[in-house]
Design a protein around this nucleic acid. Structure first.
Lengths: 227, 227
DNA sequence: CTAAAATATGACCAGGTGGTCATATGACCA
DNA sequence: TGGTCATATGACCACCTGGTCATATTTTAG
């Protein structure tokens, strides 16, 4: 955690440090990120930096915390009324919100991506240990409930599928940015629905069972609120 | 490309350089890989290194080329008789071979992984431009053919699905190594089949159509040759 | 006003980097 | 033998890193 000296700073200066740090960590992995560049960019002396933070780790943890808070806040309305949605709807809303968050905060997305890629490095272990369980555990209870409701096949491997859904979330953002558009536009919902169709129905030939409740491709009645 | 001086070297020395380079690039990203450590590990003088290679890029490109050749050779029997297999069988064999290759050559797998993660860096661009189209284009023609044969739904987005399949290949290796085992054992085929079931059938409730030819979960008659 | 406490500063440190180059070595040939 | 040529070598270069610390400045308190 940053020292008190940091939180005592005028907001403008704190913001300058945050901005510089976020830009640096988005452009370089933790290891390659340079404190020298950060302080230069933030317009503070090197010595001052070490009066605000213990070291580079300390700053990085703080940045991740800020990003995490913002993302949680962004996703909270989607999760709020998950009870009233089918699993497909929930998944759709989560992916949509995820892509939108990434588009609105490309630097955050880049930092998260770089961080997840740094698996195995000391800083990764430090962050993991200090905070969260693996991100994919987020999907496990949601899948369990969907199975109970009869919306998802009961013979799937829940853990594996959760892993799979988390992975696809990242892949979806990557695909959209790289092959569709770098903005929010009508193609985003299209893209997400195609992705969802793959997840729900798979690629194989098959016909939905008569009692099937999840036909996300044809199911346009649940519109996502635009932000 | 390495200079002639490198290819004139006795094989033992060349092999020492390759081994040292592979170990280094597996342990560190291109940028963080150290020529100093490589030469120390290979037992050659720094100056000698620069008589064999133009620079660090040159060495890295050479290493990637060696890995690519070996992998292609490893996969070739699988692709050889793709005509006689269903798409599900082919996919199964490809994933299986992919995981096996990763297990047999963990350092290669690590280098490939680190390389794919370096998207956006100068070396990534240099490699891409110098060689291959995106890896996911590999799946496009296979999918096209599977659609023609009626094994895969015709309404999928081929490009997106190819991207998706490539991504899952990586995810599969990661999942297996992290959550199942770090060796080749009977659980590998299990894991791959569960993965395949997700891809082919999706997670949603559905019953296979009567004419469906791909039921990979129940279909154990095509055994994969073990290596 | 003074004194003390808090904060700001950048020169400096040891340790690393990729790459260069003058020099040494040894194989080959006349 | 002497001469030529490819190769081997590691000291050296400029540059960068994260982090320290003595000193200067500003803020606060009495």
């Amino acid at each position: 955690m940053p020292k008190n000296t940091f939180f005592n700073l005028p907001e403008a200066k704190r913001e300058a440090v945050r901005r510089a740090a976020i830009a640096e960590f988005a452009a370089h992995s933790f290891r390659n990120a340079s404190v020298n560049r950060i302080v230069a960019h933030a317009g503070i002396a090197k010595g001052s930096f070490y009066q605000y933070f213990d070291d580079k780790n300390d700053l990085f943890l703080y940045v991740l915390q800020v990003i995490g808070q913002e993302k949680l806040q962004y996703l909270s309305p989607v999760l709020q009324d998950s009870e009233n949605k089918t699993f497909a709807q929930l998944l759709r809303d989560l992916y949509l919100a995820g892509v939108q968050f990434a588009l609105q905060h490309p630097l955050y997305a880049e930092i998260s991506k770089k961080f997840l890629q740094s698996k195995g490095t000391p800083i990764y272990e430090e962050v993991i240990q200090q905070s969260l369980p693996a991100a994919y555990e987020f999907f496990e209870p949601l899948l369990q409930k969907a199975i109970q409701r009869g919306e998802v096949r009961a013979d799937i491997d829940v853990k594996m599928t959760a892993f799979f859904l988390t992975n696809l979330n990242t892949a979806l953002v990557e695909y959209y940015l790289e092959h569709v558009s770098s903005n929010y536009d009508e193609r985003m919902i299209e893209t997400i629905d195609k992705f969802l169709a793959l997840i729900i129905r798979g690629i194989g030939m098959s016909t939905p069972s008569p009692t099937n409740k999840t036909k996300p491709l044809d199911q346009k009645e649940y519109a996502y609120e635009r932000h």
